Simulated scan of single mutants.
Amino acid sequence: MKKTSIPKNTICLWYNQDAEAAARFYAKTFPNSKVTAVHKAPGDYPSGKAGDVLVVDFTVFGIPCIGLNGGPIFPHSEAFSFQIMTENQQETDKYWNAIVKNGGKTSECGWCKDRWGVNWQITPRTLTEAMKAGGGEAQRAFAAMMTMKKINVAKIDKARKAKAGSKR
């Protein structure tokens, strides 16, 4: 029997019955992402029948994931999200719009939700760098971010550069 490479650590995402559609969307949307296998149920299970797609192996930006079609019992929540680091406004817009315009929903502070309920943080590098810088720079960038849905890179950069005590 041939041994296959199985990652030591894999993120498992529970879907109602759309794991394959979600995985194919992620593979189409994000670089270094792909569907690597689709496994059908060998027998009936509580939310499906033998032969239904049960598990989908895929990667998102190179991170191994499994999509499990487990039924509606456990919906996604903000307790788990993918954080996607972007380099500029164009890349931020590209990923945000891909998720939101494909049946997703906007949220606050760079978060959005795809049509399957998985949460995404589309986070420009400048925001993360500001938070790591700490002090006034972090405070100003944080305050600017708190007013946004999709992150506006120019406004974050302006807040980062503002002098202490000045208005954004």
Score class of each variant (00 low, 15 high):
W111Y: 13
D57W: 03
R168E: 11
P72L: 05
F82H: 12
F80N: 14
E20G: 00
K49Y: 04
P75G: 08
E78P: 08
A130P: 13
C109L: 04
T86Y: 11
F142M: 15
M85C: 10
G70S: 10
K49W: 04
P42I: 02
D114F: 09
G43F: 11
N97M: 04
H39Q: 15
E137H: 02
G48R: 00
F82P: 12
F142G: 12
P46L: 12
A21D: 14
A21I: 02
T126R: 14
N102P: 01
T36N: 14
T36F: 08
N102G: 00
F30L: 03
I6P: 04
K158W: 00
P31T: 00
Q90Y: 05
F30N: 06
K94V: 04
I6M: 13
Q139Y: 01
K158I: 02
G71A: 02
I99H: 03
R140E: 07
R115Y: 00
D157G: 06
Q83L: 11
V118F: 09
D52M: 05
R115S: 13
A37D: 09
N152F: 00
A41H: 06
D57S: 15
V60K: 15
P72Y: 02
T106D: 12
D52Q: 12
G117N: 07
I122Q: 11
H39C: 07
G51Q: 10
